[in-house]
Design a protein around this nucleic acid. Structure first.
Lengths: 142, 142
DNA sequence: TAAACAAAGGTCAAACAAAGTCAATGGTGG
DNA sequence: CCACCATTGACTTTGTTTGACCTTTGTTTA
């Protein structure tokens, strides 16, 4: 059961995240690769297979001097966002049922609500959700 | 975070602006460069990458004796103009022209883009604007 | 007053410093 | 034995730092 390199890197990153204050860490790809004595793209591979949205992670990065990779674990705050989303989703559903919007409109609105604010800090994502509801209310004159 | 020289200069300038009465400051390029012990064009680089219109800033300058660089942060009135003329609106138009979206969809998307983020700080409203573009690109598979 | 000088800021390209991509290859568990 | 995950490395893209040279503006001097 000798775990693969990728598995060990995965574990390592997860420990770092667990130890972090806010479920978020920043690493240097090349440095981590050095730690595990492998090529940098191995790290990219790990991120791409084990730290995806599906697994509950979000990664951002920057190239060039002082580049980094930031890995964020969706935490309870984020779940709050999703919860909040459900409120919004319910509202969209309502608009649809009342035939104020089409299925296509409902779909794009949902998608935008979920994705447009992704690069914002969590607390602003919450505000944004409210903003979506308010804006929709206004637009369709409840 | 805020590791590179450029990042630190950016932070410094932002603090100065935050402390200013009117969201506007004047600096001397050479002096600031001296403060950070770097070459003056480094400051120019920072201004050119982090204090552009896209980021919600406007810069003017003057050469020669008593030269200066003035950096102004857009206020909310200006922001409306900025958003209204944004890349996003052009993109929505494009989607419509290519018949990927209907007039109704274009309208609600525009409305959401302008209003959903209203309670956010200006810099995040701009980020949100970009988020809308990214999300739309993804949804309609560019 | 025109010419020279000094004092700013601007431009641009080269060198450097990351991270990303992709396709070929390797290895392993079922 | 073969499908599929893992590993590697050459190449690409993006971002930063530096310096040599340019332009504009204000000041001094012949």
């Amino acid at each position: 059961m000798a775990r693969s390199l990728a598995d060990r890197i995965e574990q390592y990153i997860k420990v770092l995240i667990a130890r972090s204050e806010n479920g978020q860490i920043e690493i240097q790809r090349a440095e981590l690769a050095e730690t595990f004595d492998c090529v940098p793209s191995q790290v990219t591979y790990v991120l791409g297979t084990r730290f995806t949205q599906r697994e509950g992670y979000y990664t951002e990065s920057r190239r060039g001097g002082c580049g980094y990779v930031r890995i964020t674990e969706y935490n309870s705050e984020y779940l709050a966002v999703l919860l909040d989303n459900s409120e919004l989703f319910r509202f969209i559903r309502e608009l649809y049922d009342k035939q104020k919007i089409s299925e296509g409109e409902a779909e794009i609105i949902r998608f935008l609500a979920l994705n447009a604010g992704k690069s914002l800090p969590i607390e602003y994502q919450l505000k944004l959700n409210e903003g979506f509801i308010k804006a929709l209310e206004q637009f369709y004159e409840k």
